[in-house]
Write a protein that binds this DNA or RNA. Structure first.
Lengths: 154, 154
DNA sequence: CATACTGTATTACGACAATAATACAGTGGT
DNA sequence: ACCACTGTATTATTGTCGTAATACAGTATG
């Protein structure tokens, strides 16, 4: 799994764990790897994994036996509901994004069909998102005059 | 424009400004609102706007006249290239996301067609992403034993 | 020329994410 | 009983994001 710096790691882990569950990668009833094992695999701190798993618990996709481990829920409906929710979120976000740059549904559908195979199969061929880099050498900088200026933030 | 807490604000502003340019909302050659004005409109600190605009400059979509203001590039090819890049990123990301939860291209296309109109037109009907909330009452917590444990982070 | 506007530069502070390093408690196998 | 393993809890440190509050420099207009 890929982790980037654009969002809190624990939030990315929540998404990844949910994905593994709704995709069947972690089937219903299966015992999850331990907190420490997951942390090792993912290259993050166990604290971060724990935080993410607590949120997955909260969403009802996993539960913990306190000392014997953590397990995927056996409630199949909960899993499929989560899958539908994730799908809907993803689709809506995509629709908003592409319509926001002036694309039509037909354009979006065509582009999707054209890139599907390659994007899904060949990670190297993907167009990765702009990696969230600091704007060149500049610092931060901003305002000036004291009172009537653009400092109307919260 | 909507700002959430899932990513640095300045990064969201970069995306938004690029979107306005490639969508034609800010046409080629047009003078951008001032840093302070944008900060006021968006409800953020001028520093944050400045940081975002510096990045948009770096990407070649805007340039600054230092004292007279900031302008959208007149290089039409740069704009359309940026639009293509954004579209490709968005489509690839979508393809990976939906295939990651086990959807086929046909399913994705159908779902997209079904949700297109409503997601684009009616913000209230959208399925919003999980709002990145702290996992209930729990703290953070994690590991234990000292040496041979999962603390193999960087 | 003076004033208002533009972008740019600094420094400081509060909040939080991620890490680090322990510690505790309960279960299961030997 | 012992020991390895599980989840959970605490405390401290570091870095960065967002904000705040100024300050400086150049242009344009009256």
């Amino acid at each position: 799994m890929e982790i980037d710096e654009s969002r809190p790691i624990w939030a990315q882990l929540v998404d990844e764990f949910c994905r593994r569950i709704v995709s069947g990668e972690w089937p219903s009833g299966r015992k999850l790897p331990s907190v420490r094992e997951l942390a090792l695999d993912l290259g993050v701190n166990p604290n971060t994994v724990q935080k993410a798993l607590a949120e997955v618990d909260r969403r009802g996709l996993t539960s913990t036996e306190r000392t014997s481990g953590r397990f995927v829920t056996t409630d199949a409906e909960a899993v499929s509901a989560a899958r539908r929710a994730i799908a809907a979120e993803t689709v809506d976000g995509f629709a908003i994004a592409v319509s926001g740059i002036g694309m039509s549904l037909a354009e979006a559908t065509d582009l999707l069909a054209g890139r599907w195979r390659i994007a899904v199969a060949d990670p190297a061929a993907r167009v990765d998102p702009e990696p969230h880099r600091e704007p060149s050498s500049r610092t931060t900088n901003a305002a000036d005059s004291p009172a009537q200026d653009g400092r109307t933030n919260q």
